[in-house]
């Protein structure tokens, strides 16, 4: 419960792990620290939640039945470019850490970990997301202003640029 004051309120987290006893307890502890947590017990469910979502950070277990954490990481990063992802694993290895980093993971932690460490990585991931997303949001606002300006040609160009931004 320490550092609760420095935790940004209502950061939206998607936590994915097939170990439900772990997932539920982690979720409970994060929620008591003002994070908004959605859980999924497998990759398919996580992809569905992410589509609905607007999540800031995802926490993924590396080894899961069916779609593993690395595959899920790849899919999430392809479809949600500002989502930061933290990988959790029972056994960390240099190879898998390098592979996950290449695929765009923000952090890589070995279980069992100190929650303070996870909270630190979560905060850093959230800040990184904001830094990446802010210029994008500013561009988007600018294009929306043009769209509302009433100039049909400018609005058409703005719509095309907005489409590109959403990709």
């Amino acid at each position: 419960m320490t550092n609760a004051q420095s935790t940004p309120s209502q950061i939206k987290i998607l936590a994915v792990d097939d170990e439900l006893d772990f997932l539920n307890t982690l979720s409970r502890r994060l929620e008591s620290r003002d994070f908004e947590v959605t859980t999924a017990s497998n990759g398919e469910q996580a992809i569905k939640e992410a589509k609905i979502g607007g999540f800031d950070v995802a926490i993924l277990d590396l080894k899961m039945p069916g779609m593993n954490g690395q595959e899920l990481l790849q899919i999430l990063k392809e479809n949600h470019k500002f989502l930061e992802v933290i990988m959790l694993t029972g056994y960390a290895s240099v190879d898998s850490a390098v592979e996950c980093t290449k695929l765009g993971a923000f952090g890589y932690l070995e279980k069992p970990y100190d929650l303070e460490k996870l909270l630190g990585v979560l905060r850093d991931a959230y800040e990184t997301r904001l830094k990446k997303k802010f210029p994008h949001d500013q561009k988007r606002m600018k294009e929306l202003d043009i769209l509302a300006s009433g100039d049909p040609m400018a609005a058409l160009s703005a719509m095309m640029r907005l489409d590109d931004l959403e990709k």
């Binding site: 170990e19 006893d21 772990f22 307890t25 982690l26 502890r29 029972g90 056994y91 279980k111 069992p112 970990y113 929650l115």
Partner: peptide
């Protein structure tokens, strides 16, 4: 390790 992780969280 998975078991330890659950115990650790609890």
């Amino acid at each position: 390790k998975n078991v330890l992780a659950v115990i650790n969280e609890n």
